Amino acid sequence: MIFLVASICIQIICAVDVVRSGRNQIWMLFIFLFSLAGCFAYLMLEVLPAYWGNRHLRTARSQVVGKVDPERGLRRARADLDLAETAANQIALGDALLDLGRFAEAEAAYRKGLALGPGQDATTQVKLAQTLFELGRSRDGLAQLDGVPEVSRGSEWDRRALLRARMLADIGEDAQARLLFEDVMSRYAGEEARCHYAAFLLEQGDRLRARQILEEVEQRARRLDRTQRAAQAEMYRWAGERLAELRKAAA
């Protein structure tokens, strides 16, 4: 009896979805004629394909895959490289290694990719500079960044400037770093620049300005949807914890 009731309820839910979504009414026949088998076919062939392209579902799926199998991208990159040792495949390998925090290996891959390439690859040169920074070699990173062809002011210019500000802060050029952070923060999309700047300010002991920046991050985060926040969950968690500490200290 319970199975029969559950079956009828599932059929009704599927039928209502057909009507509300405006899908082909022929599904009503399958749902009521074949019971659970018809419902299963409807879900597999109509409902799931429609939602699979949804950006929220894609994000959730990629996050799950990343946690369950973090080296999946690395294996794919190495498989592609085994098939063809090209500049693009070496750079893709570098990207996968960089994402995993394996910076020394990423540096080697990027250098091989640049050597195999036909000419200057500004994007990869910037990635190499970032890798050097992550390795604690900020002076080498700055030298690498200085050799990258200039671009006009825009998102790419700001991205490079943020990296430069972080490297300047790392080598103790605090005044230059602060000026550059302030400049980039006024234009850089997202909250990454603000969080890096707040971390720098906290190291400098400027708790008041750091709190102002983190409160801006908090206010902006409230206007984001769950998927947007989830993409940088660790960053927002860090910002929330530091802001809570600053507020507690000021109370």
Rank of each mutant, 00 (worst) to 15 (best):
D183I: 10
G73E: 01
K248C: 11
I13V: 04
E192R: 05
E71H: 01
R72Y: 01
L97R: 00
L208D: 10
V65K: 12
R220I: 04
G53F: 12
E150Q: 07
Q176D: 08
V65E: 07
R102D: 00
D80G: 05
R242A: 04
L201S: 02
K248N: 05
R72E: 01
L142V: 03
E173V: 07
L145A: 10
L97E: 00
Y51K: 11
E107W: 01
G101F: 00
L57N: 06
E192H: 02
R160T: 13
Q228L: 12
K248W: 14
P70M: 07
W157S: 15
L33Y: 13
I31H: 03
R222K: 07
A221F: 11
R55M: 09
A109W: 00
L43T: 03
N24W: 09
T131Y: 09
L224H: 04
L81G: 10
E182R: 10
V47S: 02
F103R: 02
D17R: 09
S152E: 09
A250D: 06
D17T: 04
A231W: 14
L145G: 02
N54G: 05
R242G: 11
M1E: 13
F133I: 15
G205F: 12
D158P: 04
A104L: 08
R178I: 15
I8L: 10
L162F: 05
T131A: 03
T124D: 01
V19M: 09
D82K: 07
A143K: 14
V19T: 12
P149Q: 00
Q219H: 09
P118T: 11
S186D: 04
G240W: 09
D80P: 08
I31T: 07
V126D: 10
S62A: 12
A92E: 01
A249R: 12
H196V: 03
R211F: 15
E216T: 11
I26Y: 06
R75H: 00
N24I: 15
R76L: 00
Y197L: 02
S152L: 10
K127R: 07
Q90V: 01
I8F: 13
E105R: 01
A96N: 01
L36Y: 13
L208G: 05
A199G: 03
E71A: 01
E191S: 12
K67T: 14
G119M: 11
C9N: 08
G94W: 02
V64P: 06
A88T: 06
M44C: 10
A199V: 05
F34K: 04
D80H: 03
R78S: 01
H56P: 02
R160H: 04
